[in-house]
Amino acid sequence: MNFTLKIWRQENAKAKGRFETYKVENISSDCSFLEMLDILNESLISNKIAHPVCFDNDCREGICGMCGLYINGRPHGNDDGVTTCQLHMRKFKDGETIWIEPWRAKAFPVIRDLVVDRTAYDKIIQAGGYVSVSTGGVPDANSILVSKDKADKAMDAAECIGCGACVAACKNASAMLFVSAKVSHLALLPQGKVEAANRVQKMVEKMDELGFGNCTNTYACEAECPKLIKRSNIARLNREWICARVGKEK
């Protein structure tokens, strides 16, 4: 298969970026999208055309959350429930022009080419996305009972890989799905319930502070989440927020 690629190139965070056009030829349909970019980079180096295109990637099996490209108007490209590394070229038409852009959000500034800085996510987690326990001195695992239903729901939310596709997809660059996944995961479990009220407030305030937009319930996040995390988590976050604010003492 042959493709024309329009790729965002940007030297560094401060430089002005632009789209460059490259062609790749004889790509196998079994090739993954990132392998196609590998092939492009090999040829860019070998033929001394340009510095290879920088893009984040690591596990290449859809779990680390490192990769993330905005491909033809969709985060992680034109397939549902996959990360960019799991997207295969058979999903494209031969001869197609493919636009590749980095995640765009104020909170995710571009570092170079298609690489963005997602440390904002870490900062949100640091604001309260954990159970405050230190190592040791914890009760026996089976002394905390969790209903299967709750455990399953918590796991549904905990599957978030922190890739940023929800922010990339959202017209408001809102991180609500990400935040709500962590809030839900912990609020559903007795271990996390203890500090749930504090957690939801801290995380939401941090999210606002970092320059993410807010949720207008378009659910683009849900449509693009590679782990199929549900909008119901956002509703749960809202509930948690209301309970936390109503119950807050001065």
């Binding site: 033809n72 108007g73 959000a105 104020k106 017209k171 408001n172 937009g213 378009t218 683009a220």
Partner: peptide
């Protein structure tokens, strides 16, 4: 005010229009 916050949250727009599956109503409020 919320909308302004939202516009500010993405200072650089995408080149390609979004093809995510969403309802037209939700995006045009």
């Amino acid at each position: 005010a919320l909308q302004i916050q939202n516009w500010k949250a993405r200072p650089v727009r995408y080149h390609q229009p979004s093809k995510s599956k969403t309802s037209a109503m939700s995006k045009t409020m």
